[in-house]
Design a protein around this nucleic acid. Structure first.
Length: 555
RNA sequence: UGGGGUGUCGCCAAGCGGUAAGGCAACGGACUCUGACUCCGUCAUGCGUAGGUUCGAAUCCUACCACCCCAGCCA
């Protein structure tokens, strides 16, 4: 066996090869280039883990660069949120925080250089006229009537564009490439447009802004990025970036494209996410049902789980749909390891232990984590009246059900084995209370002469801590929302994606739960206090993910 | 019918001419004071299809088929 780390995907293979052949003097630089016009989602996490991960593993550096070339859509709020999310994921860009807007002056100079070389021209066509002359996928386009303006005129016009002499949309700077190119991106693409808008960083210094296509490749070049990693849809743009770089005679990064992440039963498009927020289908970008990193964080997904997920799904070029179960497994794996255990009854059913003295209380000691004794013990009070989960009792239990039923025995976790002696009904015939006996010899010991397989969670009635629990489920009812062209994706929202349960009872120790802290509610799932709405005197827990439940499957 | 890209188990994904890794899911079983965790099994004579080259092909060649992306003064 080789002791070398094995590359895990085609991009790492390429980089390892480049490093081995000393391609850039052994230098490696990547970058994560978000546009600050929204919050980061799990799809971005894939890119972040790739770019930062590769740099970390292979001795390179990774830049955080904001591609802020469109002042109309971008805001400082998003910049701060993006930085926080990247940090939360566990990555550090160090000194390498950049903005495409920092390069505006250089980009302008390069545009002038291209004009002087006869490779760019100012066009007067409207957007609509440009579209008409662009041709179609199968027919070539036609040259703009302004394509052959003199260098002097173009220089003059472009300067006047910068000086604000024209209105928005009146003129545009275009690259002079080939209107008949089979690649649409090469049909004289726009380089600069007039936008009399306030930019979040450059203020009102500019009224012309470079297009992404004229800024992105050169920004990578300026930063000496060796490997420009982006998603598949930009493969068609690569020839354009290469063209600019070649005309300009500047450092040439190599671009590699990978398939973006698709996750089942959610949406990843920024437009759709924005819509969900704007139309209040969710409570905000950080709604725990959102696939945003802020949402997942609030939901209780550990950053480590998201990184594991990104590793597990791999990096390839084929369009892929990842099953939510992969993410959930990563979350469970991490939380199982870290989360302290506690008992909490979501749908309480009162149980009276008739042969246990009134007013008496015992304190049971239970491990905080059964597999990790070093995490210590917790104290759980027990008394004559307890609450159990309504689901853990059945009047007519099937054979395979080994919880409570009339005349049946079950163990109260970390407590006694109890036996259901009597069922109390209300006038409507609903079960409202159970009368049970207990076996005093079963505390920490197996019952004699019989087996009790069922173990249920419970909470002592007079010490029960009332809490609110929010049970989250998938946001959409269909695996690929919006895929059906005849149905608006908003109609595919799962109306039961959030169930709020207000009268749950937790064990008393839960009162100490701090903001965002994760617990395993035994037999139920992983929960964490809601970072927005939970207060020490009114705890609110979000269900992060349920435990696996083979009983539910068996039913 | 232009250009770019992709097709290996239900979902991802290794593989780079020497006889199909791994994960998730699923299904059995063991263990268990969480029907959890853990553990142990099972799960592609087959790699989009059809030909060809070769002692040997998922890997090379040819043709075909399917799906995704591109006609913003968005990124």
């Amino acid at each position: 066996m080789s002791t070398e780390a094995q590359p895990r995907d085609f991009i790492r293979n390429i980089i390892a090869e480049d490093l081995a052949t000393n391609k850039h003097d052994g230098r490696l630089a990547t970058r994560f280039p978000p546009e600050p016009n929204g919050y980061l989602h799990i799809g971005h996490a894939k890119s972040i883990c790739l770019n930062f991960g590769v740099a970390e593993e292979m001795g390179g550096q990774c830049h955080l660069r904001f591609d802020d070339t469109n002042p109309i859509k971008e805001e400082t709020e998003f910049i701060d949120a993006i930085k926080e999310d990247v940090k939360w994921l566990g990555f550090d860009w160090g000194e390498h925080e950049y903005y495409a807007s920092n390069y505006f002056e250089q980009l302008y100079a390069w545009a002038v250089q291209l004009i002087k070389a006869g490779k760019a021209y100012v066009d007067d066509l409207s957007g609509e006229q440009m579209r008409e002359l662009r041709g179609t996928l199968t027919e070539p386009g036609q040259n703009s009537p302004h394509r052959d303006r003199s260098v002097e005129e173009n220089l003059d016009l472009f300067e006047r564009m910068r000086n604000g002499e024209f209105k928005d949309g009146e003129k545009v700077l275009r690259a002079k490439i080939d209107m008949a190119a089979p690649n649409m991106n090469l049909r004289d693409p726009a380089m600069y447009r007039i936008l009399k808008a306030h930019h979040h960083r450059t203020g009102d210094a500019w009224c012309i802004y470079p297009m992404y296509d004229f800024a992105h490749g050169q920004s990578d070049s300026i930063e000496q990025i060796t490997h420009s990693i982006c998603t598949l849809e930009f493969a068609d743009h690569r020839p354009l970036y290469d063209w600019f770089i070649e005309q300009l005679g500047i450092f040439a990064p190599r671009q590699y494209e990978f398939a973006r992440l698709n996750l089942g039963y959610t949406v990843m498009s920024k437009r759709k996410l924005q819509q969900l927020v704007a139309e209040k289908h969710v409570s905000g970008w950080d709604d725990p049902r959102m696939p945003t990193l802020v949402g997942m964080r609030r939901r209780g997904f550990p950053a480590k789980a998201i990184r594991t997920f990104c590793e597990r799904i791999g990096v390839g070029k084929s369009d892929s749909w990842i099953d939510m179960s992969v993410l959930e497994d990563c979350v469970r794996e991490e939380l199982n390891e870290e989360a302290p255990r506690a008992m909490c009854v979501l749908d309480p059913l009162k149980v009276v232990i008739t042969d246990y003295p009134e007013g008496q209380e015992e304190i049971f000691s239970a491990p905080i984590h059964p597999q990790k004794p070093e995490m210590g013990q917790r104290q759980i009070p027990f008394s004559r009246e307890v609450y159990i989960e309504r689901d853990d009792f059945m009047e007519e239990p099937p054979k395979k059900f080994f919880r409570l039923g009339p005349g049946r025995e079950v163990r109260l976790r970390y407590g006694y084995v109890i036996k259901c002696e009597e069922v109390i009904y209300n006038d409507a015939g609903e079960v409202v209370e159970l009368r049970c006996s207990h076996d005093p010899a079963t505390l920490g010991a197996a019952p004699e002469g019989r087996k009790v397989k069922g173990i249920i969670h419970w909470v002592s009635a007079d010490r029960a801590l009332p809490v609110e629990v929010r049970q989250y489920d998938r946001l959409f009812n269909v695996e690929s929302p919006g895929a059906n062209k005849d149905v608006d994706f908003r109609e595919e929202i799962n109306p039961e994606s959030m169930k709020v349960v207000t009268r749950c009872f937790g064990e008393p120790g839960l009162a100490l739960a701090s903001a965002g802290e994760a617990y395993q509610f035994e037999r139920l799932g992983y929960f964490c206090t809601d970072s927005r709405d939970s207060r020490p005197d009114a705890l609110v827990f979000n269900r992060t993910v349920t435990l696996r439940d083979s009983w539910a499957k068996a039913k």
